[in-house]
Computed example of a mutant assay.
Amino acid sequence: MTDRAPHAMTAPRVLLLPGWNGSGPTHWQSRWEALHGDVRVEQDDWLWPRRGDWMSQLEHAVLQARQPLVLVGHSLGCHLVAAWASHSAHTDRVRGALLVAPPDLDRDDLPPQLAPWRSVARRPLPFPSTLVYSEDDPYCSPTRAVDIAAAWGSDARAEGTRGHLNGDSGLGDWPDGRRLLQTWGVPH
Rank of each mutant, 00 (worst) to 15 (best):
L71W: 05
L69I: 06
D136C: 07
P102W: 05
P142D: 10
A145M: 11
P49G: 11
V146E: 11
D108N: 15
T91A: 10
G163E: 09
L58F: 11
D45Y: 12
A149M: 03
P49F: 04
V132M: 12
W54T: 05
D104W: 07
D53R: 14
T130V: 15
V146R: 13
A97V: 08
A121K: 02
V41K: 02
A149K: 03
V70A: 05
C140Y: 01
P138M: 15
E135C: 14
R157S: 07
D136M: 09
S56H: 13
G153V: 00
G77I: 03
A145E: 03
P124A: 07
R95S: 06
R93N: 04
P126M: 03
C140N: 08
L69M: 04
H87L: 12
V41P: 00
S129A: 15
D136V: 08
S134Q: 12
S119Y: 01
A149Y: 01
R51A: 07
E159F: 14
A65Q: 08
Q67F: 01
R107E: 15
W152E: 07
A115H: 12
S56W: 14
V62W: 10
L58Q: 07
L76P: 00
P103R: 05
P126Y: 07
R66S: 14
P111T: 13
W84P: 00
H90D: 10
P49W: 07
V100P: 00
D147T: 10
V81C: 10
V100H: 01
R66D: 15
R144L: 13
L98F: 10
Y139T: 00
W152C: 09
V72Q: 02
V120A: 11
C78Y: 05
A156H: 02
P103W: 03
A151I: 04
A145S: 14
L69H: 06
A145D: 04
